[in-house]
Each structure stands twice: as structure tokens, then as C-alpha cells.
């Protein structure tokens, strides 16, 4: 019997500051905090699915939309952390990731970025990854705040390091 192969995509919703001048004057910790905000109540699993389907249809047409929608599910979304997990077909994973990146609004909430963080073959691994990533970001913010809103070179490089170390910790999970 042929098994249905699926992939799980961990994504986060970022809310970049709308005023670019503010962005220049902000410290890196503040910048990180301003991007990682809690999502408004309008952003729900239902509205995310609707927006993904709309984006799929817009960018990939009827054919691509139908192809990707076959197994598309939002398994989890937390408004508090603006983090979610999407399940999709293994073959269509790239298209779904592309669609996520092209989204700029969810429901009535605009000017946001959907950032696909990681793809995995099991939901368990992606949950573990999300927890590790969040706790490391939290530690970074705490350490950044304690060193007077650090001019230390943190945000982008350190986030990249978090992802890299997490990658190394995780063994191949391919089915």
C-alpha cells in the first residue's frame, strides 16, 4: 500500500513597523520585539486557510491551487506567539512555501510577513524545533535587554545561528 507522504511547515507571522524612520532609530532588541507581536483575533486558522487558498489561486491558478489544496491543513496556530504549523503534500511543499512568502495580509490584517521557518516530515519534530527556537530567542532578548538594549550584534546573525544549530541537532527525518 502506498503511504500518503506529507510535510509540516513551521511558519511565523511578523509585523514589521510601518514607519521606516522608526525602524532606523530602534535598537535591535526593540526591532525584534516589534516584529514578533501577538496576532489580532482576526487572524485565526480559518482566515489563514482562506488567505492561503486565495494566494494559491492568485499565484498558481486553478491548477496549482487544486493541486496544493488536496492535503492543505493548518494544524496549529497560536495568536499569542503568531506561530503556526501547516500540513501539505510532500510534492507541493515548495509551492506552499512560495505562496506563504507572497502573502501580505490575512483577513483584514495587512502589512504582515509570513515567514516559513522550517519544513519537517513529522509534526513532533517541528514542535520540538519551535519550542527550542522560541526559548533561544527569548534568552537572546533577555540577554540583549540586560546589556542595555544591546548595541551588540545580535538580532539577525544570532537568529541565523539559532536556526543553524537547530538544524545540526536534528537528524534526518525523511520518511
Amino acid at each position: 500500500m502506498v503511504r500518503l507522504k506529507s510535510r509540516y511547515i513551521l511558519f511565523e507571522i511578523l509585523f514589521p513597523p510601518t514607519n521606516s524612520n522608526v525602524e532606523e532609530t530602534m535598537s535591535k532588541v526593540d526591532l525584534l520585539l516589534s516584529h514578533h507581536r501577538a496576532s489580532p483575533a482576526d487572524v485565526s486558522i480559518k482566515s489563514i486557510v482562506q488567505e492561503i487558498r486565495r494566494s494559491l489561486s492568485l499565484n498558481l491558478g486553478d491548477y496549482g491551487s487544486a493541486k496544493c489544496s488536496s492535503l492543505l491543513q493548518v494544524k496549529y496556530f497560536s495568536n499569542r506567539t503568531s506561530t503556526g504549523i501547516i500540513r501539505c503534500h510532500r510534492e507541493d511543499c515548495d509551492l506552499v512555501i512560495m505562496t506563504l512568502m507572497l502573502m501580505s495580509k490575512i483577513g483584514d490584517v495587512g502589512e504582515l510577513i509570513v515567514n516559513p521557518v522550517k519544513v519537517s516530515g513529522t509534526i513532533k519534530k517541528i514542535e520540538q524545533f519551535a519550542m527550542r527556537r522560541n526559548s533561544k530567542i527569548l534568552n537572546l532578548i533577555k540577554s540583549g535587554q540586560s546589556s542595555r538594549f544591546g548595541d551588540n550584534d545580535f538580532a539577525v546573525n544570532d537568529l541565523r545561528n539559532i536556526d543553524n544549530t537547530n538544524e545540526n541537532e536534528i537528524e534526518n527525518e525523511n520518511d
Binding site: 492568485l58 499565484n59 491558478g61
Partner: peptide, 10 residues
């Protein structure tokens, strides 16, 4: 027609 079926790739 191309846009309807295949979106931006079409």
C-alpha cells in the same frame, strides 16, 4: 486563460 489556469506562471 493562462492566468486563470496557471496563475503568474501561466
Amino acid at each position: 486563460a493562462l492566468k486563470r489556469s496557471y496563475g503568474i506562471f501561466g
